[in-house]
Write a protein that binds this DNA or RNA. Structure first.
Lengths: 206, 206
DNA sequence: ACCGGCATCCCCTATTTCGGGGATATTTTA
DNA sequence: TAAAATATCCCCGAAATAGGGGATGCCGGT
C-alpha cells in the first residue's frame, strides 16, 4: 500500500525538504505540490491524494479555511496541518476544520511518516508540541458576541463610547454595557488590560 | 571557486530543502548544519564556512544575536538571515547585527544562489519583500526614554497612574506627564490606541 | 559653561471610563 | 414552547484619563 501525498506550502525550501525526506520512501508517492490555495483547488479537481500536507499560511488564503473546504468536498482526503508556529489558535482552528493531524516544521522524517500512516487509518496525529497545546485546558476561550467583537475592535481603534454609539447607531449606554461585559469576559480592569488581552487572545489583529 | 555554506535552522524540512536545493550545485559545498545556537558555536570553533544561512528563531536563542556574535568573532563569515516572516523588526535587527542578506523561506533556488554569490563578494542581498521593508521609510521608529518605557509597560499591565506612582516612588503628576508624552510620541489619543500601537511597534511584548 | 534632553512636579478643567445597580424586547437554542 | 442568550436602554457616583498650560533641577556632552 502506497500513500499518495500532496503538499501545499508556499515555501520552496519546505517543499524541497519534504520531497527530499519522503521522496525515496517506498510507501509514499508524491502526487505533487501547490504553492497557493488556487493551484491546490485546481489539482484536486483532477485527482485526489490520500493525504495533504498543508501549511497554514498561504499567499492567497490560509490553510485553515482550505482545510475545511477540502474536507467538505473530498471527505476521503486527509489533511495534516503544517507550520512553523505552535500557536494554539492555529492548531485549534485547523483541527476544528477537520484536519487529521498537525506537525511543526521541525518534525523529523519519522514523525512525518508516522503522521501519514496514522491519518490514513483515520487516526489523529499531533506532534508533541501540538498535543501539549491541545491538552492544556488552554484559557477557556473567551466567547464574544458579534456586537462585543465590533465594540472591542472599535475600542482598540481608539473610539470613545460616544463615537462608537454614533457609529453603530445606538445609545452610549449600550456601548457602555458592551464595554463592561468585555471587561468582565476578558477579566480586565481597564482599557489598557482589555486591549492587551484581546491582542494576546487574538480577538483583535494588531 | 566553491563556497562553503553552513545552515543554522531548527526545521529539519528546511534543512533538507536547502540541502536538496544546493546539494548538486558545483559552486556550493555544504559544510553542514546546526539546529541550535550551541551546536552552531561548536561547529565554528572547528571550521569556518564562507556563508551561514541563519534562521532568526532558534530553540536556544535567536538568529539576531547569534549573527552579531558570529560577525564579531569571525569577520570573514557572511551571514544571510532566513525566515518565514517579513516582519520589519526582524529584518532590521538582523541587518543591524551585521547580516549581509535576508531571504524569506519561499525564496527560489535562483534567489538563494544569487544571494550567496552576492554576499561572498561583500555585497548586500535582500529579497524583494525584505528590500521593500527596508526601503519604506518605516514608521520613524519612536524613541522612548527609559522611564517612558517603564511607564508604558505598566500601563499595559493595567496599572493606574496612582498605582504606577507608588510603584515607581514618584508623584502621580510625573506619571501623568510621561503618559501624555507617550500619547504624543505614539500619536495616540487614548489608552486603547496607545497599547495597540505599542504592541504593533513592538515597544511592549504581548 | 552652556544647552538639550530628561525626569520631576504642579495647576486647571473637561471628558471618559469604571463599578454598582436594573429593565425590556428580540433572537437563539435546547 | 420555555429558557437562555443577546442587544438594547437607563440611573447613580467615583475614579481615571486627556489636554492645556508652566516650572525646576540634573546630567551628559560639546
Amino acid at each position: 500500500m502506497t500513500y499518495r501525498v500532496f503538499i501545499v506550502d508556499d515555501h520552496h525550501m519546505v517543499i524541497e525538504g519534504l520531497r527530499s525526506l519522503l521522496g525515496d520512501e517506498k510507501e509514499i508517492e508524491l502526487a505533487g505540490h501547490a504553492t497557493s490555495v488556487a493551484t491546490c483547488r485546481a489539482f484536486l479537481q483532477r485527482q485526489l491524494p490520500d493525504v495533504i500536507l498543508m501549511d497554514i499560511s498561504l499567499p492567497d488564503g490560509n490553510g485553515m479555511d482550505l482545510c475545511r473546504e477540502v474536507r467538505a468536498l473530498y471527505p476521503s482526503v486527509f489533511v495534516i496541518g503544517l507550520s512553523t508556529f505552535s500557536q494554539q489558535s492555529f492548531i485549534h482552528k485547523m483541527m476544528e476544520h477537520g484536519a487529521s493531524g498537525y506537525l511543526l516544521k521541525n518534525a523529523t522524517k519519522e514523525e512525518l511518516l508516522e503522521a501519514i500512516r496514522d491519518v490514513v487509518k483515520g487516526k489523529i496525529y499531533l506532534s508533541e508540541e501540538a498535543s501539549q497545546i491541545m491538552k492544556k485546558d488552554n484559557p477557556p476561550a473567551v466567547v464574544l458576541t458579534r456586537r462585543e467583537q465590533e465594540v472591542l475592535a472599535l475600542i482598540a481603534e481608539g473610539l470613545t463610547n460616544n463615537e462608537m454609539a454614533q457609529r453603530l447607531f445606538v445609545s452610549t449606554a449600550t456601548i457602555d454595557t458592551h464595554r463592561k461585559n468585555l471587561l468582565t469576559k476578558l477579566d480586565a480592569k481597564n482599557t489598557a488590560t482589555l486591549v492587551r488581552k484581546a491582542v494576546q487572545q487574538e480577538l483583535i489583529q494588531v
